[in-house]
Amino acid sequence: MTLDLLPLHRKGIISSINFDAVPLKLIEIGCLPGNEIEVLHIAPLNDPIYILVNESHISIRKELAKEIVVEII
């Protein structure tokens, strides 16, 4: 499943990323295959989503979240 479909407060492991679509900054903070990721909050209109990855909190658009494939833990 992609990150935009990960339920609120659920954790997952990143299995793959579209490196062409994901900004370098997101990769630098640890958004890489094998790392744990969690959806902490979803904005009222369902975009953006607030995530925790590699001890960093970041807000990303759902369009970008569709480029990150995760497996639910």
Rank of each mutant, 00 (worst) to 15 (best):
T2E: 14
T2Q: 13
T2I: 15
L3C: 08
L3H: 07
L5N: 09
L5M: 14
L6R: 07
L6S: 04
P7M: 08
L8N: 06
L8E: 09
H9K: 15
H9M: 13
R10T: 14
R10E: 15
R10P: 05
K11I: 12
K11T: 14
K11F: 03
K11E: 14
K11W: 07
K11G: 12
G12C: 09
G12Q: 12
G12Y: 06
G12T: 10
I13F: 05
I14G: 03
S15G: 04
S15A: 06
S16I: 09
I17Q: 03
N18Y: 02
N18L: 08
N18W: 04
N18A: 09
F19A: 02
A21L: 14
A21K: 15
A21Q: 14
V22A: 02
P23V: 09
L24T: 11
L24Q: 10
K25Y: 04
K25H: 00
L26A: 03
L26R: 08
L26S: 05
L26V: 09
L26Q: 06
I27C: 01
I27F: 00
E28P: 01
E28Q: 13
I29N: 02
G30I: 11
C31P: 11
C31I: 15
C31Y: 02
C31M: 15
C31A: 11
L32A: 04
L32D: 04
G34S: 07
G34Q: 07
N35Q: 13
N35G: 01
E36S: 12
I37T: 07
I37N: 05
I37P: 03
E38G: 02
V39N: 05
L40I: 15
I42E: 07
I42T: 12
P44V: 12
L45K: 14
L45F: 10
N46M: 15
N46V: 14
N46W: 07
D47F: 02
D47K: 12
D47T: 13
P48E: 03
P48I: 11
P48L: 08
P48R: 09
I49W: 00
I49K: 05
Y50T: 11
Y50E: 08
I51G: 02
V53I: 14
V53P: 01
V53M: 03
N54Q: 05
E55Y: 03
E55G: 00
E55M: 05
E55F: 01
E55Q: 13
S56N: 14
S56F: 08
S56M: 10
H57E: 11
H57Q: 12
H57C: 05
I58R: 00
I58K: 00
I58H: 00
S59Q: 09
R61M: 09
K62A: 01
K62D: 01
E63L: 11
E63C: 05
L64P: 02
L64W: 01
A65N: 07
A65Y: 04
A65T: 08
K66E: 10
K66Y: 01
K66M: 12
E67L: 06
E67K: 15
E67M: 12
I68H: 04
I68Y: 02
V69I: 15
I72R: 02
I72H: 01
I73W: 06
